[in-house]
Structures are given as C-alpha cells and as structure tokens.
C-alpha cells in the first residue's frame, strides 16, 4: 500500500486565513481572552496552538498561554496496536483549574483522540470549560464529539487520508487529501 496525494485543500495562505478566523471566533465566543488558554495536542496541534497565540498577540495585544498535551497514555487502542506509539511530553506551564481550555488539533476524524484528550485534561485539574478547535473536520465520528471551531469541513471516504503538513515539522504549509493505492 502506498499513499498518493489526490488534491490540495489548503495552501500556506489558506491555513493562515483559517487560523485568523478561528482566533477571532475564540475571542468572540469567550467575550475576550480572560482565562483562555490554548492546549495543542501533539504533534501537529502544538504548532497550530502557537500560531493561534501569535495571531491573538498581534490582533488582541493579549498573551495567551500555550500548553502541549500528549495523549498516548490515554489512547483506547494501546492494547490493539502492533506498533507501540512513542510517548511524548505533556507540558502545561500553568494550572488549568478555572481556565477556559481551547484544545487545538489538526484533524477531527473519529473523535477518539479528543476523547483521550478530555480524559488527559481532566486528570490535570478541573477547567471552567473545554472547547475544541480543529483545522479540518473530515467526519466519520465514532464518539459523540464535535468541534467549536472548524477551519474547513472536508467530506471524505474512509479510504482517504487527510495529511496536514506544517512548516515546523514538514518544511511546508499544506493540507492534502491522499488515498491508499495498491502497488
């Protein structure tokens, strides 16, 4: 099996515009940024959370705290997988009690990652509320979870894969749909 890119959904400018819009929606929904913190889900949620914080710093002149959450230990498929996922670090340089936590991830798919993230967050304290921001919602939910902020809704088939490439890790900003093909 091999993955080939089928179509580009967002380029560099597209990602930037979507993040600017989400940043404004966060301000609007929370009526400002008091007690709002951004928590990126490893790996690609982390640079997205940092970019949102940068946008908010420029537009709202506010320093929004950013944390990094690794959900590996909370996965529900650990005993089902053959390959063992690497455990990354969780770094939350603030107390999440009474904060408005905005979880940030690249793709919302089955919802199981977010389910794990909710458990991981609640083990660390009791936030005032938890919201979810994603760059792409591709559907196919397996648990009752929805996002508060969606960059782009992309209808997909289960065979397709959404690849989010970010300059921090991949050297390029791009979202593409790929598909597995028989070799």
């Amino acid at each position: 099996m091999q993955l080939i890119d089928k179509a580009e959904i967002m380029d560099n400018d597209g990602i930037r515009r979507v993040l600017v819009r989400i940043a404004h929606e966060i301000v609007e929904k929370n009526k400002g940024l008091d007690n709002v913190v951004l928590v990126g889900i490893r790996r690609r949620g982390v640079p997205l959370a940092r970019r949102l914080a940068d946008i908010l710093r420029n537009s709202e002149k506010a320093d929004v705290l950013v944390g990094e959450l690794d959900i590996t230990l909370y996965r529900d498929d650990l005993t089902l997988r053959f390959e063992q996922p690497h455990v990354g670090r969780t770094v939350l340089p603030f107390d999440i009690a009474k904060r408005k936590v905005v979880l940030v991830d690249d793709v919302l798919f089955t919802g199981r990652t977010i389910r794990a993230a909710l458990d991981a967050i609640i083990d660390l304290g009791r936030p005032e509320c938890i919201q979810l921001a994603v760059l792409v919602d591709r559907g196919h939910r397996e648990v009752p979870i929805r996002a508060d902020y969606v960059g782009k809704n992309v209808p997909t088939s289960r065979k397709e894969v959404i690849n989010v490439r970010l300059s921090e890790y991949d050297g390029i900003d791009q979202v593409v749909i790929s598909e597995e093909v028989e070799q």
Partner: peptide, 20 residues
C-alpha cells in the same frame, strides 16, 4: 530513557495516575 523523560511529569501531578 526518552519514554521515562516523558513520564516523569506524571509524578508531579496532583492526580498521579494515567489509565494506560
């Protein structure tokens, strides 16, 4: 060693338990 580096953070939490 690298896995332990990630897990050490759990020891400083108020609730020292992960469901893994």
């Amino acid at each position: 060693l690298s896995t332990a580096r990630s897990l050490k953070e759990i020891l400083s939490r108020p609730i020292k338990k992960v469901p893994t």
